[in-house]
Simulated assay, not measured.
Amino acid sequence: MGRENACACGIPTVQDGIGKRGLVDELGRFSRAAVTWAAGGAESDAAAAEARELAGGVRTVVLVEGSSDQVAIEALAARDGRDLGAEGVAVVPLGGAMSIGRFLDVCGPPGLGLPLAGLCDIGEERHFRRHLERVGLGSGLTRAGLETLGFQVCVADLEDELIRALGAEGVQQVIEAQGEMRPFRTFQGQPAQRERPVEHQLRRFMGTHSGRKALYAQALIAHLDLKHVPRPLERLLTHV
């Protein structure tokens, strides 16, 4: 709650709500501008100017590999009663881990110099480590060093973390609630999947259609016991 716009009794005012919405809208504009700037091209100069103009309202930039990571982080924060946008925390999807260098050039010391945090898969850890060192945010970084900086590593990825947190049975209950048990059973029956552990089948199933990872990131977080939050997500939200 914006303290300067709260009444003495602590109840949010209309102006307070408008202020929060305005900040969230500006954070969304900042994220879009940062993505366009990092992509380069004809619109990058205008995007850079917009990002610089809006950077004053950004407290921390959280760099994540994709939209499902963004959905999971924001949904988990909301379950804990937090509104990251209203707090000035911009969760920015890279569109793939190989783009981390460009986003660090935009948001990190070579560019806007904003406080940073992030989340990556274990297979992409080396790319994050190398580029963080390149922009001067560490030297000889270990896993512990990355975590101290605010960059957490999923083993093996977000879906794997959530499947282990809920258990295979719990995840299948979520799939049932989404009305997708029949497609999942069909997927399990494919020759390439029949002999694989159910946890592997679940993880692969979530990546079979565009948008399914984000759908299940939201749904699994909604069903997650908050006593069993995956360590990388818990540490990331504690950091920011």
Rank of each mutant, 00 (worst) to 15 (best):
M98S: 13
K213S: 06
A77Q: 09
A156Q: 14
R52Y: 03
L94H: 09
T186H: 12
G189H: 06
I18W: 12
G17A: 08
R82M: 09
E161R: 04
S31D: 07
S67Q: 14
A75M: 00
P109S: 01
R212K: 15
R203F: 02
I175F: 02
V91Y: 00
C154F: 11
L202Y: 03
Q190H: 14
L54C: 07
L146Q: 03
G88P: 15
A97Y: 07
R79A: 04
L76E: 12
A177L: 07
A177Y: 02
L146T: 00
P115V: 08
V171Y: 00
H200D: 15
Q193P: 12
R235V: 08
L116Y: 10
G145F: 13
Q193H: 10
C9H: 10
P183R: 02
R59T: 15
Q70K: 00
G19R: 13
I73F: 01
L116E: 03
A222K: 05
V198W: 05
G145E: 06
Q172L: 14
E195K: 12
V229Q: 13
R194G: 11
G113D: 01
Q193C: 08
R129N: 05
T60M: 10
R59C: 14
C154Y: 06
Q15F: 11
L54V: 04
I73C: 02
G41S: 02
L141V: 12
E176D: 13
R32K: 09
R231H: 14
A48I: 01
R129E: 10
Q172A: 09
D225L: 03
D25Q: 06
L224C: 04
F103W: 08
G40M: 01
P12D: 14
L236W: 11
E169A: 15
